[in-house]
């Protein structure tokens, strides 16, 4: 028997299944969504070329398994995408996770931005004065002594939001460092 012959006696590239060869749109979307979730968990944990190979191989195996179990069953048999991804990187997860770092930094920035808005609205609502046709605000907010004001203080008709204070920049940088596992970076490593 040819080493390339598959179990059913057919040669590679053929199939003996009686199920439809081409999955429907819904099944294709299910498969793509699952593979995308696995791939997202692999980001920064292995080279892009390897990730592309894994995506392609997963899609092929899902298509084969779906002929026996249906696409939903084929996906269920693979377990959780994160667990599957963990298996692929077992023993090699020592790469910098650039995308995770960027997401962590963006997440931190978003939280800080929302906090700023919250305090801005709170302070402005609590100190609104009508002076002629203008509205004055009296507000003051400091993160910590010496860290610079988040919002200026005093009575003004306009205000300036100092969102990227040194304190914020340090927090965002910290989130990036921790998220990306930047200590794994080696200049000569590929």
């Amino acid at each position: 028997m040819s080493p390339a012959a598959d179990q059913s006696g057919t040669t590679p590239g053929t199939t003996a299944s009686t199920m439809p060869d081409t999955p429907g749109l819904r099944d294709r979307l299910r498969a793509r969504w699952f593979v995308w979730r696995v791939d997202a968990s692999l980001d920064g944990r292995m080279p892009r070329r390897r990730r592309r190979e894994i995506r392609r191989e997963l899609r092929a195996n899902l298509a084969a398994s779906a002929q026996d179990h249906g696409m939903r069953g084929a996906i269920e048999r693979l377990g959780h995408p994160t667990t599957l991804a963990r298996g692929y990187v077992e023993g090699t997860d020592q790469r910098v996770r650039w995308r995770t770092g960027v997401l962590a930094a963006l997440g931190t920035f978003t939280v800080l931005y929302l906090l700023t808005l919250f305090f801005l609205v709170a302070f402005s609502l609590g100190a609104t004065e009508v002076a002629g046709s203008e509205v004055s605000f009296s507000y003051a907010y400091e993160v910590a002594p010496g860290w610079g004001p988040l919002v200026g203080a005093g009575e003004q008709t306009s205000f300036e939001v100092l969102l990227l204070s040194p304190f914020h920049l340090i927090l965002i940088a910290l989130a990036w460092v921790l998220g990306a596992r930047i200590w794994r970076w080696r200049p000569a490593a590929r």
Binding site: P12, G13, T15, S17, D21, P23, E57, R59, A60, A64
Partner: peptide, 10 residues
């Protein structure tokens, strides 16, 4: 190896 039922198999 190309497959008739989906992406090429490895």
């Amino acid at each position: 190896v190309p497959s008739s039922s989906g992406p090429a198999r490895k």
